[in-house]
Design a protein around this nucleic acid. Sequence first.
DNA 1: ATAATGATTTTTGTATACAAAATTCAATGA
DNA 2: TCATTGAATTTTGTATACAAAAATCATTAT
Lengths: 230, 230
Amino acid sequence: MKRPLITSTNLDQKAYQIIKDMIENRELKPGEKIPQEKLATDLGISRTPLISALKFLEQEKLVETKPRRGFFVRLFSLEELVSIFEIREVLEGLSARRAAHSITASQCTQLRKIFEPFTKVSNITDYQAYSAADRKFHNLLAEISSREFLSSILQTYNIISLAYLYPTREGLIRTPNETIQEHIDIIEAICSYDPKAAELAMRFHLQTTAATLIEEIQSDKSLRKEVNNR
Amino acid sequence: MKRPLITSTNLDQKAYQIIKDMIENRELKPGEKIPQEKLATDLGISRTPLISALKFLEQEKLVETKPRRGFFVRLFSLEELVSIFEIREVLEGLSARRAAHSITASQCTQLRKIFEPFTKVSNITDYQAYSAADRKFHNLLAEISSREFLSSILQTYNIISLAYLYPTREGLIRTPNETIQEHIDIIEAICSYDPKAAELAMRFHLQTTAATLIEEIQSDKSLRKEVNNR
DNA sequence: ATAATGATTTTTGTATACAAAATTCAATGA
DNA sequence: TCATTGAATTTTGTATACAAAAATCATTAT
């Protein structure tokens, strides 16, 4: 993928965003070593701001350092992934609850529009598009909740959830047909200003997803190898 | 406070820990500019690993950069502090719930010992000691829950809660007499392996604390000035 | 062919260098 | 006295330099 060279100040913030995107869309894959010199040259910057950016990502757990060996895209075990879903469950529950307090009519429209293309068909087959919608939904909701800290934590964990499950059906743990109604339930609870129902619906959604993941871990050990794409 | 100079590799991790401590115990105060050259010399390192460390802290929101103006210890508004308590409420609720699943007898003893000095007296007057116990309790619990990601998020937010409320009664929002029973309730729920009760008790505890904070914001606007100690 | 050894190359961790921006401070004028 | 201007100083953002560690590769011995 062609990227424009970075210009102007705060090279590290820009490098940060680019590398993050590269991890999210798997140009950099879990476990892979990040070649500093090469990447710096590719981005048209020196190692200094690149390392800076990698430190940010290290703190976010998207990247890890092995001393004297460099930076690597973080690998997650399935168990860790489950514990991330656990965190998402309570935090996105909170996100939905807050959103139900403050949502506006136009935000509601935005939310509904995300899943509109899928409500008309009886069997959703485009996993890729649905996965993108799913992600958009969770991110927009965090934004609507207008909680800066919440959004920033969630953004990280959502990227992990997605990037690291990618080899498994475009990052989806359950099929669109299984989850579409849950998504709609969450949106409708929020749009009818029912914080309690919104929180419960969201927690149910993520809890069920995590449970499916756990089941798969137990029944199909081969998934383990699959997850990080090696 | 005298600090030993840093030696050996990974200077940035060590600088990170030291600066974090300095913020926690208010050697560096919210709003203060962090003098790079001076601090680097004091620690016996160059600016490179120091900046590295500051990037970590920036990502954790303990520190912020103003472009071309340098790093500053982050200021939090009371509203942001409330939103941090909101996050702590759900995450520490989760922490208590997980702890109730996995706790051992010796960990129980450890937890109980923290508040033991205060259960014997009818009126707790040593706020400083109680505040330290409070912090220890929340940190130990996060550790017991043995959730790496959870602990790391919580550690950050607990530091913020404490450091930024410090000028208000040693960082305590409510008096020890008001909260001691809640702490004991949480511990006992966990130690009797009751995840549901443990989560509820923890959420009640933090929710009540946050509510008190909100009340104070509304009734006493002067607190606003007080919080960041300026 | 495989393993062990050592020389060569690459990469890391940290310091230093330096231009551009911000700040400080002194001199000047209102 | 106070505000304004502009030079001198400090600090930032980034590049580069460099020793030490790690990885690679070729050579020799088994």
